[in-house]
Nucleic acid binder design. Structure first.
Lengths: 150, 150, 150, 150
DNA sequence: TTTT
DNA sequence: TTTT
């Protein structure tokens, strides 16, 4: 295919992760993440600020770790892909929501930093980047991905 | 701040860039970009494929270059940030559109690869990444690299 | 061209930035950055850890900001490119040193987090990423976002 | 840990991958990758160009795929981490080599584009990014990582 | 030489 | 609406 779909974010959680479960019993976590950019208006010289809210979705082990260690205000590094999802509201209007399906997360502290225990890299499925030294790597857990209807 | 909002894509243009102009006369380009992932269904063993469409927006010089060299089917590398935008349709319903505001683009060829002339990196505003070689880059900056013992 | 050379790091400074000046008077900062990965040895089950040290180089404004706000132990996000440099030691042996020429830096706190004033994104040359919000950013660019039906 | 060590490259292979095997029988591929940046000298106005050569290392399945499909001149997207390795030459001098341990590769074509069959994303270990749709994902292969001494 |  |  030769295509790439990647999102990298560092931001603050707007609320604690909401943890749910699929029919198959797999955990799914949802939360929002805020990134803020600031700049100085060239004309008026005044400081400006804009916040972007991102919808983060995590599955399986990453969902569990986030559910356990992340809180409102946590600062995290997130890596994932963009995925849009169509849904129809009660008003009968079809809408599209764009979400980031995360597959890597690192806790960076922040206002309400979590337990020391959580200060690690966490990945969806097999670790790839940080967690993959040249020798002695470990396979990890088995997950059935079928049926994640949320 | 300490936040980061970054998207990295490699994909195919769904249509040639639409070039418009702001009131101030600055060019703005819009196009869609397809990324496709393929996988094999664990249960049935059949090949699966899913395509994600991304809405790309470019300004100024990057918009001009894209308008000139990119076509339907072009393969490009895009770097930018996520930005959501609210708008109200003719039906009076408010919706949110998520776009990627690009600030870096590289042509990678594809089915209808553009001119050789366009086979370069292009950036919004001042170059940052690729554009700072060790020696002889910019007149306003002469550095003797020989003696950097670190 | 169509090439890309990019490094993204989050790590801890091994020592405060060393600030020097080129003949032309431009500031250059050097420091080392540690990234650490941990894993569990599959066979023995024991915890393993490996630290990688990266040589970071910054120029101009980014060098100044880092010289002012970063210390030993600071946690930072760094973006840049790989660049190798040949040099001959006093022993007459030629060696190659690989450095990361940074063009983006964000302070993330860490043990000895810097001033609040330093808690911002900093870029080499003109800002590109974070710095281009949808409205009201720059005087030289007025865009009416209301009517971008795409 | 909260650290990150990531390299992203798009470049051309300097030579076909050299495929070797560890004592444990696992494949390891080595090749060099060229990234080139071009700029115009502000003072003289002449075109400048600098090429950076990166040492890429791949293991297991990624090594196999690369050994099969990549050639001299292939254009690829590479993702991985920086890792330095000390070694002592026949002259008794200790040197450090910095390599990129790749965990993701996408073929982008290039001068001598490979088989159509190879035009896919390939990952080290479990797929994470592109290859991880919401449903029906697949675990993949089992590899014993022990003993990769090259 | 960092950090958790 | 792209591409392989």
């Amino acid at each position: 295919m030769a295509t790439l779909n990647k999102v990298t974010l560092i931001g603050y959680l707007g609320h604690a992760p909401e943890l749910r479960y699929t029919n198959g019993g797999d955990p799914v976590a949802h939360f929002t993440l805020a990134t803020t950019e600031t700049w100085k208006d060239k004309a008026t010289g005044e400081k400006k600020e804009a916040t972007e809210w991102h919808r983060i979705v995590m599955y399986r082990k990453l969902a569990e770790i986030s559910g356990e260690f992340l809180k409102k205000g946590s600062l995290v590094y997130i890596e994932g892909k963009l995925q849009s999802r169509k849904w129809t509201g009660k008003d009968g209007v079809e809408r599209v929501t764009v979400e980031i399906i995360a597959d890597d997360m690192r806790m960076l502290g922040g206002r309400h930093a979590g337990h020391e225990d959580g200060q690690q890299a966490a990945h969806d499925a097999e670790p790839r980047h940080q967690s993959a030294p040249a020798k002695g790597r470990q396979p990890q857990f088995e997950y059935e991905d079928d049926a994640i209807p949320f």
